[in-house]
Design a protein around this nucleic acid. Sequence first.
DNA 1: CACACTTGTGTACAGTGTTCACTTTTACCT
DNA 2: AGGTAAAAGTGAACACTGTACACAAGTGTG
Lengths: 215, 215
Amino acid sequence: MTEQPGPRTTYRHGDLRRALIEAGTELAREGGPDAVVLREVTRRAGVTPNAAYRHFADKSALVRAVSLAAQSRLAAAMEEEQSAIADDVDGRKSVAALAQAKLRAVGAGYLRFAQTEPGLFRTAFANHVDIRDAATEESAGAHGRTPFQLLSDALDELVDAGVLSADRRGGAEFVAWSSVHGLAMLVIDGPLRGLDATQRLVAAQRLLEMVQNGI
Amino acid sequence: MTEQPGPRTTYRHGDLRRALIEAGTELAREGGPDAVVLREVTRRAGVTPNAAYRHFADKSALVRAVSLAAQSRLAAAMEEEQSAIADDVDGRKSVAALAQAKLRAVGAGYLRFAQTEPGLFRTAFANHVDIRDAATEESAGAHGRTPFQLLSDALDELVDAGVLSADRRGGAEFVAWSSVHGLAMLVIDGPLRGLDATQRLVAAQRLLEMVQNGI
DNA sequence: CACACTTGTGTACAGTGTTCACTTTTACCT
DNA sequence: AGGTAAAAGTGAACACTGTACACAAGTGTG
């Protein structure tokens, strides 16, 4: 992305930190979190392995940065799905139906990203992601909201619309997130990998339905 | 377990394959799938690294075997939870309530194992587990049933008891499994790691409730 | 312009998975 | 029995990895 052609001319790289994250992201996309190996990352950035240590404490710090970048892309996928819905109906639906559609879009975007970019998805949740990262700016999408925040927003709207009772609001993100996350993991990396596209879609629809009914 | 004290006396090990799996399981328990490293495994078995290649094609095959062993322990945890329920009520409940309790036990055992043995749990689902393994004998518990089969059984009983309508039976294992698996992953390895014991329990109860209502 | 600071390089080390050639033990066949 | 082929172990080597240490090349500030 930044400098493929030969060794760079300047001694200083210019924006090595970003270049390392980008190269790491590319590796993660191709082979998941284990594929982001420090030496290869620096190689792609046209720099010595040790140069990475000027920008990251160690490999795990680099991977964490890549993970945040992946989360940011996940947020973007969710926002995309949401805006598609908004464009589609644009006020023709009741607030309740719209709020439900918005929550559904959160889940659908999540699942779509997991299947479209399994390597990045696994990286997003691979290593020691802390809930404190759920609100960090680096993992936010275009509108500045992280995946977790997007889910929270959708649930809040569901309460405002009267679909979800206030006393069931607490902890709702945990169970909603769990369901969707579980399906994603099982489908891309787990025992449900064998499922073909239509089976996956059916399972996804069924799951989102369950969340809507059971939350 | 098999031979700690010094180098063994016989040239042949006797049961190296099992010893390797046991050592690998111990490592997995302590540090998850990435901690099971071939050289350390052979070291613990008192054998040269290359000896492992007489029993496993490569490292990933060894890890797969360890993964199956972990799944087997998971099945045992689920069976344990189920038999506890059976002892508790023993015919005092209706078939419907008993079937529901059995399904709940499946989920509870799953979540308990994930939190009690996070390393093994992560290993059980880490690398390239195939759904075909879901029926393999090596991953079965004491009663010869794999985790997936235990879930299927519980859902079947739910249909027999008239709690779950037959037309909602198909694909039910996917959504049920997904929910529980997702919570487990998020709690032990993901963004929900910060939750304390009571928060986890609340989330678990809430989730199992949702599955019961929404399935 | 000198000097401290940042950012990159070079060399080195321990640890990993895996291959190849070798030795030791076991099992089988006449 | 005895000879022999397969099975199960060893040993040295290679190409990797992450990381530490000492040093060099640029950069901004007094």
